[in-house]
Amino acid sequence: MSILEVENLSVSFKQYTDGFKEINHKVISSLSVTLEAGEILAVVGASGSGKSLLAHAILGILPRNASISGTIKYKGVELTAARLATLRGKELALVPQSVNFLDPLMRVGSQVRTASNSEDVVSAQRKVFERYHLGKEVESMYPFQLSGGMARRTLLSTAMVSGAKVIIADEPTPGLDPIVIKEALSNFREFADKGCAVMLITHDIESALQITDKIAVFYAGTTVEIASVKDFVGKGEAIRHPYTKALWRALPQNEFISIPGSQPHPSSLPPGCLFAPRCEIATPECEQAPPDMRELRDGMVRCIHAT
């Protein structure tokens, strides 16, 4: 059974135009994704594609002007606000994007301790620090004294020490050097191998490929493809969706060519397939109605032409 299931999720934001008119921007639309125990799922997409908002929606920390529809299930039971409040930080944990999420006035050691749910918080914290090669002196440091890599590992410790079953990591790698990235990613692998689940949100398809099992590709607020890592080889012949293909081909180690244009803004989404305006193989049919997610070769794709 899936540990986390997101079904038909839509998120929209109430916004105001220059005049005092109110409009609703749909930033995530009919999104479905599942996370299995023992698995790492990478959520890959451009900035502004709504991938961070998915994390915030799952954890129930969207801003006030957001409205949400669809269902999110944890261990088969729907996640209501009340249930979420008891699970958040215990079974569901977030590894946030930046060091700014640490309390600047609290020593790192005590911050990690407050996240722990075990009996002996001090030894739990020491254990986790040891595992992530954070020396004893780090315990009594303040966040500003940490280097980028140490801060990352501290954020990671906070999630790990909580004993969570599901970890959602939001862009844990950018700006780190390759050694630290590798280490952070192998930590996730280790965690998943223990039977937990990780959702790795990133724009960096390359590092995602190194450790994950499945990749969900986001475009303009919805998934266009869910593929196994094995599909990303060669010229991307096994890849289903044209956008995923474009991403793969744009990597510097591949062809380093880009497709023109950019992701549509939530205020002006095309009526049919969201990718149609930039798609090479688009036909008039693509502009009729948004395609549904369908199964194809052990994966999922949202394209009527995919084979």
């Binding site: 109430k14 105001y16 005092f20 008119k21 109110e22 609703n24």
Partner: peptide
Amino acid sequence: KININKFPLNRKQRTL
């Protein structure tokens, strides 16, 4: 998208 708000104004208009 029906406006279920009791007031005919949106929040920004109410502020003004």
